[in-house]
Simulated scan of single mutants.
Amino acid sequence: MTGFASARGAQAPYVWSWELRSVNGKGLDLRLRVPDWLEGLEAALRADLARALTRGNVTLSLRLTRGDAGGAGVLNPAVLAAALEALARIEAEAQAKGVDLAPSRASDLLGLRGMLEAGADSEDNGALIAALKAELGPLIAAFLEMRETEGAALERLLRVQLDEVGTLIARAADLAEARKAAMAETLRNNLARVLDNVDGADADRVAQELALIAVRADVTEELDRLGAHVGAARDLLDKGGAVGRKLDFLMQEFNREANTLCSKSQNSDLTKVGLDLKALIDQMREQVQNVE
């Protein structure tokens, strides 16, 4: 979802510059900074961005200046009157309390927010707005091209990580198979020890309880689900498009199965594989946050 694009343009007497950037986000959050005196421009730009993008915190900035005398701007009478009234009140209060203030300067007032309305005169801004709208398409195209380049690199990384997950799953399956004989022998010894030391115990009930312990230690289902998640993630990458939310959900499922594998392992080597899986899945989750 991260990306950046910039552009410059001009139409006498105006010159302008664009910046379009985005960072990770759960949804699509559009933030536009455009002159408010260009009526209807922000709504049109927002609509175009919403059609082109689906995810990310996106900021579009337009800096517009005027090259002729009109660039000095037009005074806002209401803001000027309010500023002068406030200034007179401050000076009167200061004089009444015997406080000397430095003389006020016109430049101080001109720097107040809203004092100058650049371009907010009676001229028709239709041609300017049309020119600005026309530039958004190429800007978005350049922005998407950068994101696609980064996305291709991210896809390659995720595929490598999925291959590593598959390797760890195969390793875990081998370890789980190798521990079966040892676990069975341990269970038989435990059963014999219990039956030898507990008079009147129900042998069938004890055997059932030990069988349940064996079932709870079986990690076959977890490994099968992890393998299915790997396949689902690869399918999403093959499909392309806006798959970030689905991949994010899959990462949660990956993590759940890895946690269960660790809790049921009862074997140091298998536990290590489970921890390696968790670490790798965490890395993948960080990368997936940047997928649209």
Results as ranks from 00 to 15, higher is better:
residue 40 G to E: 14
residue 131 A to Y: 01
residue 118 A to R: 13
residue 272 K to G: 09
residue 248 D to N: 15
residue 244 G to A: 10
residue 283 Q to C: 12
residue 187 L to R: 15
residue 10 A to I: 05
residue 289 Q to W: 03
residue 37 W to S: 08
residue 94 A to Q: 08
residue 99 V to G: 01
residue 267 N to Y: 02
residue 11 Q to P: 00
residue 217 A to R: 11
residue 152 A to I: 04
residue 42 E to T: 07
residue 130 A to M: 02
residue 4 F to V: 03
residue 171 R to L: 12
residue 221 E to H: 03
residue 119 G to V: 01
residue 2 T to V: 09
residue 199 D to R: 14
residue 201 A to Y: 05
residue 243 V to K: 07
residue 195 L to N: 02
residue 5 A to K: 05
residue 20 L to Y: 02
residue 77 P to I: 11
residue 279 A to R: 09
residue 232 A to P: 03
residue 59 T to E: 15
residue 56 G to Y: 12
residue 197 N to C: 01
residue 117 E to V: 04
residue 60 L to N: 09
residue 227 G to S: 14
residue 123 E to F: 04
residue 192 A to C: 00
residue 61 S to W: 10
residue 274 G to D: 10
residue 168 L to Q: 11
residue 106 A to F: 13
residue 22 S to F: 04
residue 93 E to C: 08
residue 241 G to Q: 10
residue 181 A to E: 14
residue 26 K to S: 13
residue 155 E to P: 00
residue 202 D to K: 03
residue 252 Q to R: 09
residue 49 L to S: 09
residue 122 S to V: 07
residue 78 A to S: 14
residue 266 Q to H: 14
residue 102 A to G: 03
residue 108 D to Q: 15
residue 145 E to H: 13
residue 185 E to G: 10
residue 99 V to A: 13
residue 34 V to A: 15
residue 136 L to W: 02
residue 81 A to P: 06
residue 37 W to H: 15
residue 95 Q to Y: 05
residue 184 A to D: 13
residue 11 Q to W: 06
residue 276 D to H: 13
residue 251 M to D: 06
residue 190 N to M: 10
residue 54 T to G: 15
residue 81 A to Y: 08
residue 267 N to L: 04
residue 255 N to R: 05
residue 140 I to A: 12
residue 119 G to Q: 01
residue 17 S to Y: 04
residue 170 A to R: 11
residue 40 G to N: 12
residue 61 S to G: 10
residue 7 A to V: 08
residue 245 R to C: 08
residue 245 R to L: 09
residue 268 S to F: 08
residue 32 L to H: 10
residue 19 E to T: 14
residue 106 A to W: 14
residue 90 I to E: 12
residue 284 M to F: 06
residue 229 H to E: 04
residue 104 S to K: 03
residue 72 A to T: 11
residue 110 L to M: 14
residue 136 L to D: 00
residue 203 A to M: 01
residue 164 E to Y: 01
residue 45 L to D: 09
residue 81 A to C: 03
residue 137 G to P: 00
residue 22 S to I: 06
residue 226 L to K: 05
residue 38 L to I: 13
residue 148 E to T: 12
residue 126 G to C: 03
residue 281 I to V: 15
residue 180 K to R: 15
residue 290 N to W: 05
residue 214 A to R: 12
residue 213 I to M: 13
residue 31 R to S: 14
residue 193 R to N: 04
residue 248 D to T: 07
residue 286 E to V: 09
